[in-house]
Simulated assay, not measured.
Amino acid sequence: MPKVTETVLEIDLDSLAHNYNFLRSKLNPTTKFMAVVKAFAYGSEAPATAIKLEKLGVDYLAVAYANEGIALRNGGIKTPILVLHPLAANFASIIDYGLEPSIYSIKILLEFLEVANSMNQKDYPIHLKFNTGLNRLGFGENDLELVSDHLLKATDVRVVSAFSHLAASEDKSERAFTLDQIAIYETIFHKLGGNLGYVPMKHILNTSGIINYPEAQFNMVRSGIGLYGYGNEPSVDAHLKPMATLKTLISQLHRIGTHESVGYNRAYLSDKPRVTATLPLGHADGIGRHYGNGNTFVSINGQKAPIIGNVCMDMIMVDVTEIDCQEGDEVIVFGHHPTAEEFAFTAQTISYELLSGISQRVKRVIIGK
Score class of each variant (00 low, 15 high):
residue 47 P to R: 08
residue 61 L to V: 09
residue 37 V to C: 04
residue 49 T to N: 12
residue 31 T to C: 10
residue 50 A to D: 02
residue 49 T to S: 12
residue 40 F to V: 02
residue 35 A to L: 11
residue 48 A to E: 14
residue 26 K to R: 15
residue 42 Y to P: 00
residue 35 A to C: 11
residue 53 L to K: 02
residue 56 L to A: 11
residue 46 A to C: 13
residue 24 R to M: 04
residue 48 A to P: 09
residue 64 A to F: 14
residue 29 P to G: 06
residue 49 T to W: 02
residue 42 Y to E: 09
residue 37 V to K: 02
residue 32 K to A: 02
residue 48 A to N: 13
residue 65 Y to H: 11
residue 63 V to N: 08
residue 39 A to I: 01
residue 40 F to Y: 09
residue 49 T to V: 13
residue 50 A to L: 03
residue 46 A to D: 14
residue 52 K to F: 11
residue 24 R to P: 04
residue 68 E to V: 08
residue 62 A to Y: 14
residue 33 F to K: 00
residue 52 K to W: 13
residue 36 V to P: 04
residue 32 K to S: 05
residue 26 K to C: 13
residue 37 V to N: 09
residue 43 G to R: 06
residue 40 F to I: 01
residue 47 P to N: 02
residue 30 T to F: 00
residue 45 E to G: 06
residue 25 S to K: 12
residue 43 G to I: 00
residue 43 G to H: 06
residue 57 G to I: 02
residue 43 G to N: 12
residue 31 T to S: 05
residue 49 T to A: 14
residue 39 A to M: 03
residue 59 D to C: 09
residue 53 L to T: 01
residue 65 Y to W: 09
residue 57 G to K: 11
residue 59 D to G: 12
residue 49 T to E: 06
residue 28 N to E: 10
residue 51 I to K: 15
residue 55 K to N: 10
residue 38 K to A: 08
residue 39 A to T: 07
residue 35 A to V: 03
residue 34 M to G: 07
residue 45 E to M: 11
residue 38 K to F: 06
residue 27 L to C: 05
residue 62 A to D: 05
residue 28 N to R: 15
residue 30 T to S: 12
residue 33 F to E: 15
residue 58 V to M: 08
residue 62 A to K: 15
residue 35 A to Y: 03
residue 58 V to E: 01
residue 26 K to P: 05
residue 43 G to F: 12
residue 53 L to C: 08
residue 24 R to H: 02
residue 34 M to A: 11
residue 57 G to M: 07
residue 37 V to L: 08
residue 62 A to N: 07
residue 54 E to W: 02
residue 31 T to G: 08
residue 32 K to P: 02
residue 44 S to K: 06
residue 43 G to A: 09
residue 31 T to V: 11
residue 64 A to P: 00
residue 26 K to D: 08
residue 33 F to G: 00
residue 56 L to N: 06
residue 35 A to R: 12
residue 47 P to Y: 11
residue 63 V to Y: 09
residue 58 V to H: 01
residue 49 T to K: 07
residue 51 I to R: 15
residue 32 K to D: 01
residue 42 Y to A: 04
residue 36 V to N: 07
residue 55 K to P: 01
residue 43 G to M: 09
residue 53 L to Q: 01
residue 67 N to G: 03
residue 40 F to A: 13
residue 49 T to C: 13
residue 64 A to M: 12
residue 32 K to C: 00
residue 41 A to V: 03
residue 36 V to Y: 03
residue 50 A to V: 02
residue 38 K to D: 01
residue 58 V to N: 10
residue 26 K to F: 04
residue 25 S to C: 09
residue 35 A to W: 08
residue 42 Y to M: 04
residue 37 V to Q: 01
residue 42 Y to G: 07
residue 67 N to H: 14
residue 52 K to R: 14
residue 26 K to I: 06
residue 31 T to Q: 05
residue 32 K to Q: 10
residue 43 G to L: 05
residue 53 L to M: 04
residue 25 S to D: 13
residue 29 P to L: 05
residue 63 V to I: 14
residue 27 L to R: 07
residue 40 F to S: 10
residue 46 A to M: 10
residue 25 S to E: 13
residue 63 V to P: 07
residue 48 A to K: 15
residue 39 A to K: 03
